[in-house]
Computed example of a mutant assay.
Amino acid sequence: MNQEIAPLQLLAPRRAFSVLLSPTRRGARLARLLATAHLGEWGIPSESAAQIVAELAANAMVHGCVPGRDFRLDLTVCEGGGVLRIEVSDARGECLPPGPADVVIPHDDSESGRGLLIVEALADRWGASAGPFPRKTVWAELDLVPLHQQA
């Protein structure tokens, strides 16, 4: 029986954190603070990840808000520790953001519209997926460099 369970354990994430937060400024701020705390606890540099979480949580607050529905933040370090995956899911599945190739650069005097450009600049990969209804998930991945390879 243990032989049947072992392969499933190999596919499991090494570290994972998930939380539901209110789609408010406070919820978006808390998402960043919780991400920073957990990544610090895991020994993972958090500056870029925290900025990505802040942008995706702010988008969930502004563009994904449905009264009475929370958004979810998921952080996962995959087996082997080579990739950090950040996911923010909200209840507006019908409002998918533009994909990485379709992000529009706002006018210089525009006060908003740069969040996904920041995600694009910081993440190694990112995208969005619909479902399950009525949700959508915007995700970003960061390739993690082992501490002995950082200079």
Score class of each variant (00 low, 15 high):
1 M>R: 09
1 M>W: 12
1 M>L: 13
2 N>F: 11
4 E>L: 15
5 I>E: 10
7 P>H: 05
7 P>M: 04
9 Q>K: 12
10 L>G: 06
11 L>W: 00
12 A>W: 04
12 A>I: 06
12 A>E: 14
16 A>Y: 10
17 F>Q: 08
17 F>W: 13
18 S>C: 13
20 L>T: 11
20 L>Y: 04
20 L>G: 08
20 L>F: 07
23 P>L: 03
24 T>W: 03
25 R>Q: 14
26 R>Q: 14
28 A>I: 02
28 A>S: 15
29 R>M: 10
30 L>M: 14
31 A>Q: 11
34 L>C: 03
35 A>P: 04
37 A>L: 11
37 A>S: 13
37 A>T: 10
39 L>V: 09
39 L>D: 06
40 G>H: 09
42 W>Y: 09
42 W>G: 07
44 I>E: 12
44 I>G: 01
46 S>D: 13
47 E>G: 11
47 E>V: 13
50 A>V: 02
51 Q>E: 14
51 Q>P: 03
51 Q>V: 15
52 I>N: 00
52 I>K: 08
54 A>S: 15
55 E>M: 04
55 E>W: 01
57 A>E: 06
57 A>N: 07
57 A>W: 12
60 A>K: 02
62 V>A: 07
62 V>P: 00
63 H>K: 03
64 G>N: 05
65 C>R: 15
65 C>H: 14
69 R>T: 01
69 R>C: 09
70 D>K: 09
70 D>Y: 01
70 D>E: 14
71 F>D: 05
72 R>E: 15
72 R>F: 02
72 R>D: 07
73 L>P: 02
78 C>S: 13
78 C>E: 14
80 G>K: 07
80 G>C: 04
80 G>A: 00
82 G>Y: 08
83 V>S: 11
83 V>C: 01
84 L>A: 03
84 L>R: 10
89 S>R: 08
90 D>W: 01
90 D>V: 06
91 A>W: 04
92 R>H: 04
92 R>T: 04
95 C>K: 13
95 C>R: 15
96 L>S: 09
98 P>C: 01
99 G>E: 05
100 P>F: 00
101 A>F: 05
102 D>W: 04
103 V>H: 05
104 V>C: 06
105 I>W: 11
106 P>E: 03
106 P>W: 09
107 H>I: 00
107 H>Y: 06
108 D>R: 09
110 S>F: 10
110 S>Q: 13
112 S>H: 12
112 S>F: 11
113 G>T: 09
115 G>D: 04
116 L>I: 02
116 L>Y: 06
117 L>A: 07
118 I>K: 10
119 V>E: 04
120 E>F: 05
120 E>L: 07
120 E>S: 15
120 E>C: 07
120 E>V: 00
121 A>I: 02
122 L>Q: 00
125 R>D: 13
125 R>K: 08
125 R>Q: 13
127 G>Q: 06
128 A>P: 01
131 G>V: 06
132 P>T: 03
133 F>S: 12
133 F>Q: 05
134 P>Q: 04
135 R>I: 02
135 R>F: 09
135 R>S: 08
137 T>G: 01
138 V>Y: 00
138 V>H: 00
138 V>W: 00
138 V>S: 09
140 A>T: 10
141 E>I: 07
142 L>G: 00
142 L>S: 09
142 L>W: 08
145 V>I: 15
149 Q>A: 12
149 Q>L: 15
149 Q>W: 13
151 A>T: 12
151 A>Q: 13
151 A>I: 10
151 A>M: 10
